[in-house]
Write a protein that binds this DNA or RNA. Structure first.
Lengths: 347, 347
DNA sequence: TCAGGCTCTGTGAGCGTTCACAGTAGAGAA
DNA sequence: TTCTCTACTGTGAACGCTCACAGAGCCTGA
């Protein structure tokens, strides 16, 4: 049960002491080289680096953390009823992007999923105990109790997406989001530029900022074009494919003469197109369809879906940048990034 | 740059010393309570627990790790050209499952993605330096240099999926996989039970164990049914939708009279169905189609795809179980889990 | 009675770092 | 020369925990 359990044998790794001996300097000097190299002579610098290479030394992060109080790691926290995000391929891009951006700083990412109450408790305790330096938060409503508790404990926190909630406290929260409203404006303008005049919309859930902002963009463009806003042309769904199908059914029922529809998510757009085609409408000839997200689903529809791409790679990079800045003592910041219209066959 | 940077104020957390003082015992006794509670009187036990609750004490994992040499964390390593896995929704189930299973043991999961050479180097160094106790590996070919290096360094490792490579060393590798061969058998038997007799197959890449085993299952069932194996009925693809389309084209060209096809992945099955339908074949009337994976794509086809479900939730749980056992000193183990036939409309 | 065993407890050492401090050497100024 | 300043280096604490050990009290059996 003690010596050499597993094959291959993990021997004791070299310590800063070994490096110091090898280089013929003291621990302190090695430490200085490791942390920026100020006040260390070129000769010592060189000797230490050579010794590090020779011994294969890697700093023991536990020992370092013990004294610095930093953990040099950050958490990636999902408080969402996770299925929703886990099925969203963009989520993967986000997760991958955050991991890479952190890796460049040599900071590991700890994945935390707050599903069950037990998990929520564990995670809260883990984070507030200081085992991570900061948290990348993915949660549609930042009124989430876990998030609130973390904020209260003063843990550096960056949300993905605009947080909902009271404006007063929200101003203190860092977040990075795509410009939902502007993306919606682009899409609706595009539909109008195609000559469509009865433009409907399937909005997202209106208790979420994304849903609200995309709908606002829709309204703005109609107003700016001098078109009346017909409330019969506005329905909303839950971002799912099935939600899109039933939304389209309602639309066909209430205002069968629409000639374009802006759908607030690609998944819903998939459902909308399927429902329209079953009802005998041709896309895009009879009804032009525009989505939002540019998910892989947008390529599997027939015809391929015109949509709005959110800059997920930039979002993840900015989240990490803002979080690290905040860990470094800077104030919370909000970042809004531009979207992009992706023209395909459905509009 | 020093005192009270961020608002909210993170004060110094209580230490084991504070708990000991509060409970009127020594550090040693508190430590014993924390680690299993052997050789400690009920009275002391109770006093310590009360003190922990009162002070809100949480163990400092860095201090603990420094002395135990364990990190009490594990890595989840992706060495794959990651797009492939990141777009596979099953991957999300796996990642989520591993996170939860580990959370139950209070072990954080570090997400590591070995994409660029720089990332590979960083990750290898991080792991071999002992910053994680073990690694959950997702990689189709375990001949991967990172994996090989980890194995050489004696790092506990569990692969997801049967590793390819020389049988001799492979026997020392832990892995958890679905029973590909048996799943394939089930599907082909199902197709035969429908009365089909010219059953084709679109195999996966034959340099991957999954591809090989699924094809082996196909051959076995034909043999056991006394049916000839017509090599014209066997083509293979790369698991992608496009690969399925071109495979179907080849099949239609070489053996146009087949009345069923077992496709080694749902994504390919999607392509196969689309190609068949474009060629005027009805599914399932003319050709019954069976997939493999039970991905969400299986629900979007028309008709819905009959397929084989891999027990991803159990796979993740087993991976964690085997890894923790191995970290605890047990020998590597291989676990094969049963699949399940999901009957839908395409067969 | 004493030896030997159990159960329980406290103490000192040490894990590998960083940090504050004290010190050295050399350059330049008085 | 002597004094100060700067550039650099070494040293002894810590950080918060676990582990090995020593020892205390008690029970059991010879």
């Amino acid at each position: 049960m003690t010596m050499s359990t597993t094959g291959g044998g993990r021997r004791r790794p070299p310590t800063i002491h070994d490096v110091a001996r090898e280089a013929g300097v003291s621990r302190g000097t090695v430490s200085r080289v490791l942390n920026g190299g100020h006040y260390v002579s070129p000769a010592a610098q060189e000797a230490v680096n050579a010794a590090i290479r020779k011994t294969g030394y890697v700093v023991n992060r536990h020992a370092r953390s013990l004294i610095t109080g930093r953990s040099d790691s950050v958490g990636f926290l999902l408080t969402e009823p996770q299925e929703r995000f886990f099925e969203d391929p963009n989520f993967n891009v986000l997760l991958r992007g955050c991991t890479s951006a952190l890796a460049a700083h040599d900071i590991p990412l700890l994945l935390m999923i707050a599903g069950t109450p037990d998990e929520r408790r564990r995670i809260t305790r883990y984070i507030t105990a200081g085992h991570v330096d900061g948290v990348l938060l993915v949660s549609s409503h930042s009124g989430d109790p876990v998030a609130a508790e973390l904020r209260e404990a003063g843990v550096p926190l960056v949300s993905c997406g605009k947080p909902i909630g009271p404006g007063s406290s929200a101003s203190k929260v860092s977040y990075v989001a795509a410009d939902d409203r502007d993306g919606a404006r682009d899409m609706v303008r595009h539909l109008l530029s195609l000559g469509r005049r009865r433009v409907a919309t399937v909005a997202g859930p209106l208790d979420l900022p994304g849903g609200v902002d995309r709908l606002a963009g829709y309204r703005e463009v109609l107003a700016e074009a001098g078109l009346p806003v017909d409330e019969d042309l506005i329905v909303s769904g839950d971002y799912s494919r099935a939600g899109g199908e039933s939304a389209a059914a309602r639309l066909l029922d209430r205002a069968p003469d629409f000639d374009a529809v802006f759908v607030a998510s690609d998944l819903m757009a998939q459902g909308v197109m399927s429902a329209l085609q079953k009802a005998g409408r041709r896309v895009p000839e009879d009804v032009a369809v525009g989505g939002f997200d540019d998910s892989p689903a947008a390529l599997t529809t027939e015809p391929a879906l015109t949509t709005i791409r959110q800059p997920w790679d930039r979002i993840s990079a900015e989240m990490v940048r803002v979080l690290l800045a905040q860990i470094g003592g800077e104030d919370p910041a909000a970042v809004i990034l531009p979207t992009e219209l992706v023209r395909r066959a459905s509009a």
